[in-house]
Write a protein that binds this DNA or RNA. Structure first.
Length: 268
DNA sequence: AACACGGTCAACCGCCGGAGC
DNA sequence: AGCTCCGGCGGTTGACCGTGT
């Protein structure tokens, strides 16, 4: 990267050469961890100056929060976490840090990356905008129910924990009540016809969502008629009606692209 | 083996709001 | 009230890596 080279190799700019950019070294990590363990993770500019690291306070903070923090979780996003991300994003939009609060150990950066690389990709493949009604309906009526199904299938049938319980992790302090969209709650265990969802969610949900997303979700007269959960939805039409998906096309698309780990579910 | 391509993710940037003076 | 500093946040970038050709 230009900045990396300029700052690390060519000290032609005296001010720039005082600030390191680019990937952190192990030594820098060690210094930062040591310093934070002694002084705490606040006053980042002070930490940056006092530690001798030629980094900005912002850079130190980011490195700590996204990588060095002891409770940071790394690795694959679980099904439960995928569900939470989809659900919370539907409520709050791109409020990554807020969403991250309900995914212990996950950083806003990681969630943001997940959304951009996985979820937005699907919107692109569907040839619709991520904020379009079609995409939101697909998330709500197909992907999320599928995730719920998969999650519940993972736990023993006798002790199927309601998926909604995940939203109030007892180990996680909830600072404010989460505005829950009524339609979503009904996805647990049994799927409710979309017509019922739209009927029960035609008022408050739109308000909730519009608060967050500027009303882009509202006006969903485009509810696919007769949806009764996965495998029973009818043809999908993209905005403009130029891209119709059959049941089977949608199923295989979603399985391959969104839940590649799925192997045992068969389309009926 | 070499190259192209796409996905992932760490890190930076600019903006904003709150706190302190 | 206005200014400055700082931390937090969301958007974006670019290096790296795996995979396909």
């Amino acid at each position: 990267m230009e900045d990396y080279e300029r700052n690390s190799n060519s000290p032609t700019h005296e001010e720039d050469s005082d600030v390191r950019k680019g990937p952190w070294t192990e030594d820098e990590d060690a210094i930062l961890v040591n310093f934070v363990s002694i002084h705490g993770d606040a006053r980042w500019n002070h930490i940056a100056r006092s530690s001798g690291l030629k980094r900005t306070g912002k850079s130190c903070r980011l490195r700590w929060l996204n990588y060095l923090r002891p409770d940071v979780r790394r690795g694959n996003i679980t099904l439960e976490e995928q569900f939470m991300i989809l659900k919370l994003h539907s409520l709050w939009g791109n409020r990554w840090s807020k969403i991250a609060q309900y995914l212990p150990g996950r950083t806003d950066n990681e969630i943001k990356n997940y959304w951009r690389t996985r979820v937005q990709k699907q919107a692109k493949h569907l040839r619709c905008d991520v904020n379009s009604n079609l995409f939101k309906e697909t998330m709500r009526n197909v992907w999320m129910p599928r995730l719920v199904e998969r999650i519940n299938a993972q736990s023993s049938p006798a002790t199927c924990e309601p998926v909604e319980s995940m939203i109030t992790d007892p180990g996680q302090p909830i600072e404010e009540p989460i505005p829950v969209e009524p339609g979503f709650l009904q996805f647990n265990q049994q799927f409710v016809p979309a017509s019922e969802l739209s009927a029960t969610s035609s008022n408050s949900p739109a308000e909730t969502l519009s608060d967050v997303q500027g009303g882009v979700v509202n006006g969903s007269g485009s509810d696919p008629a007769g949806q009764t959960g996965f495998g029973e939805f009818n043809d999908w039409g993209c905005v403009g009606g130029d891209n119709i998906w059959t049941d089977e096309e949608s199923f295989w698309f979603l399985q391959d692209q969104f839940c590649p780990e799925m192997t045992s579910y068969s389309y009926n």
